[in-house]
Design a protein around this nucleic acid. Sequence first.
DNA 1: ATCAAAATCAATCACTTTCTTTCAAAAACA
DNA 2: TGTTTTTGAAAGAAAGTGATTGATTTTGAT
Lengths: 252, 252
Amino acid sequence: MLTYERHDIILELLRQKRTVKLTDLTEATGASESTIRRDLIELEDAQKLKRIHGGASLPSRKSDEPTMLDKKTVFAEEKQRIGKLAASFIEDGDSIYLDAGTSTEAMLPFIEAKDIVIVTNGLNIVEPALQRGFRTYVLGGYVKSGTLAFIGRTAAESLKQYRFDKAFLGTNGVDPEFGFSTPDPEEAAIKQLAIQAAQQAFVLADASKLQQTSFSRFASIHDAALITEIKSETELFLEQLSEHTTIEGVKP
Amino acid sequence: MLTYERHDIILELLRQKRTVKLTDLTEATGASESTIRRDLIELEDAQKLKRIHGGASLPSRKSDEPTMLDKKTVFAEEKQRIGKLAASFIEDGDSIYLDAGTSTEAMLPFIEAKDIVIVTNGLNIVEPALQRGFRTYVLGGYVKSGTLAFIGRTAAESLKQYRFDKAFLGTNGVDPEFGFSTPDPEEAAIKQLAIQAAQQAFVLADASKLQQTSFSRFASIHDAALITEIKSETELFLEQLSEHTTIEGVKP
DNA sequence: ATCAAAATCAATCACTTTCTTTCAAAAACA
DNA sequence: TGTTTTTGAAAGAAAGTGATTGATTTTGAT
């Protein structure tokens, strides 16, 4: 087997799994440990991966230390661009639903429309919304500690009292066939009801959510418009997706 | 398992739950306590989390807003004493209602009862309640920007779904004839309903609220027990009042 | 408040796994 | 064939792991 074939196998496995064990690589390639180790050293020199005890992982973007911090800020900037785009769809006098989550929270600073009414199931939405002077209503119900979202029967009942011009939702997965999905079935149920109560529905998704599926589906692709960021690595996927729904994309 | 995978699991659990116990992590990862401890030390060095006795928590964000903090410290000690006394009435398995406001919020750190359910109409109550691991439900409805209280028709409707062992309420006025009162009629309405839905009702009042009346009455003196602090200047008033209702007082 | 019991922690040891270094055999190339 | 490159194996070094011990902190009861 040629050297570069092994390298390709290693990098491909790494892309799939984010971290790989040395034994995974020896099995996948049929080469000995020594050989794989030498491959890893070469690939690390080429900055294609980072060697860790027991295997390898994807390289950290910048100098080793502020990995997480960078990730957060980069992530935050993407969320803000998506939030700004989403906010631009809100018009004066609209009644809107804002799902719990950081994506929808990022919309608030960019909302310029006047006299709007906000309904939300997200604890994190309430304070920023009030601070900006919006009339704000919340669904009641059980508070899920992880996402600070109101879920359950009471939340669903509350939702039936409202009709929205627009609903904005977060998601954990976007897939052409499975549609939009999220890990918690209870949260999915609320999202579903919110979409039903809205004339227009928008799903906000950063690039990491594309081509993913999560446990509970809450809408099919054509039930809501997708608001996301167009990156080179997702461009093809989004193009295919655009046959099934509206896509509003910003470029970084 | 690779070290990095464990680290990811730890951080993910932490994001979900805000605080994690060591035993949670050993179960989730299958690693020993020693290993998890070492992981936590590494992650703390990397500022990814803060180690606490028994586990880990998210690193403290930014310092709290000075205005709110200042406001709290002024009345903090009296409120805490009252809160502690009020919390002592809560028993294992109770379902309790906590009114919006700082007085009731001050109870939370002192609640020792297990398996309680908390229902509240106060945004400020939710996060501290979740942080202490209580099952928490909120009323829905309109959010009043001043007090961060949920009020209005929806809140009232939500309230009808619950029955409480005990309800704890704030007040702006305590008067032998006019009873307990508060400036906002909408908030008064919610308080009234909460008292009706509870087997026992407690009103928390610091000394500044005694011998005061406010615009909207929500209960007469004998509808609820009063929890307050006995100071020399209010001693006489409280003695007179004790003919009409139960008074639970702490001394400074 | 004070004390004892329980839980949690830090430090250490023995053991396992993984890593580096080294060397010789196999493969590739001229 | 002779030379270079690649490969696999082996030995000692380094790192990671789990269990144990005694110290520290927290909890509960008096």
